[in-house]
Design a protein around this nucleic acid. Structure first.
Lengths: 232, 232
DNA sequence: CGGATTCTTGAGAGCTGTCAATCGTTGTGG
DNA sequence: CCACAACGATTGACAGCTCTCAAGAATCCG
């Protein structure tokens, strides 16, 4: 007579979603390499161990829309349907663990707390999708980019670091924000020459004036641009 | 020894998510009336019985972003979190059925097929959110509006009627597509004077050339605008 | 080192936003 | 029933932002 299923279920018991994947072999993907394609039969779920990936959809005429960037701890293919609804490609070298979808569903179905976690993940993904909608809607290039930088500045605990890792190309940022690479480039230059950010190293950015960046992100198109490039 | 839980669970058994709501009293909302606000504690789930509603989020500076329109059969508040992530307001007179969230979760937890349905609904909502992202991203006013009309032309079985009911105001359309009411108005006028659509009655539109509308929706900025207003 | 790729910068055009006036509908009160 | 106010929709003129096209700079990689 056990009140604690953990005691009798043995290996069935998993403390959280991540541990479901923990025994799976590590798979490596090189930059640019696809993990799966939009429209593929959704046979597997993946957990990102290391690296960064992009999720994207293509329009008929070839326009590319990036619907999200994936980081360690994120799950790929959670929105379980017959087929994947977007393509996922590695940006940096990536390490993934794979789990077959039917086994995953089986494991999750047996364990209420895993169901809850999965449900919660799906809600997160929903919220993220909606946040991107809000980000794209009626906002200037300045606002979009500021919001993007703030988003990338968040580590996985939600804390904000001033040092931002930007492994993706300008084209990825552009296709995520719904603008052109030229405008992305110009906007970054503008932020840098205003002293709000600095980019000492390629593919990395440091936020010098977080407050100003937040103001821009929220659409306060007032000052903040006031040049701290003084004495020149 | 029953292989058919339905036989022994009695009233616990529900054939689908809708039937969970079917015994709840009908609540009516007048146009403009809010059902709940973004940030409210998420105490209830709703099913739309009749009418149309808008789901919206507000930015700090007052800009309004409509993240979706809701029609009969849709559920409100499926993305169960502590608090509602958007405000929902009636556009037309609306009839809803309400279910308390904790009872809903209880009922759903007991019945695997309801869990599946709920999960599926959430996936749908996720997909819809992402579709809106795609809709907003790097597309012209013409494309956006054509896509919007095609979306509203879909009935609940996914079939396409040429007669489109548009109970929402221009401002709602504009805030959904990320444009201004002026541009929405101009674009509709342009479509009408090209003979692609007609608007015999206020708040209703008829698609005269579905093929042309689809071409515009996909970004074929070629012809299609060629005036069939011939003989003038 | 040289070619390829990515990023930056510039000039000009086009689309959409802004501001403003007019039109049409709805609803209210005399 | 009509006049008028209030509101939403349409249309116009103009400006500004972002896109397009193009060239040059920087970086990557063999």
């Amino acid at each position: 007579m056990s009140l604690h299923p953990v005691a009798i279920q043995g290996r069935e018991r998993e403390s959280d979603l991540s541990s479901v994947f923990s025994l799976q072999p590590l798979e490596r993907f090189a930059p640019g390499q696809p993990v799966f394609w939009e429209g593929d039969e959704a046979r597997h779920i993946f957990e990102v161990g290391d690296g960064m990936l992009r999720a994207l959809r293509m329009l008929a005429d070839g326009r590319r829309i990036i619907v999200g960037f994936l980081r360690p701890g994120d799950l790929l293919g959670v929105s379980l349907r017959e087929r994947y609804i977007y393509t996922v490609e590695a940006i940096t070298p990536v390490e993934l663990r794979r789990f077959s979808r039917w086994r995953f569903e089986d494991v999750v179905a047996r364990q209420p707390h895993l169901r809850e976690q999965l449900f919660s993940r799906l809600c997160d993904e929903m919220t993220a999708a909606q946040d991107q909608t809000v980000l794209l809607s009626r906002r200037s290039a300045d606002e979009k980019l500021a919001n993007f930088l703030l988003m990338m500045a968040q580590d996985r605990h939600g804390d904000r670091t001033p040092v931002i890792d930007l492994p993706m190309a300008r084209l990825d940022i552009a296709d995520y924000l719904g603008m052109t690479i030229e405008t992305v480039s110009r906007t970054i230059t503008k932020l840098a020459s205003s002293g709000i950010i600095a980019s000492p190293v390629k593919r990395s950015i440091i936020v010098l004036k977080m407050q100003a960046l937040q103001s821009i992100a929220e659409g306060d198109d007032n000052d903040h641009w006031a040049a701290p490039v003084a004495f020149r």
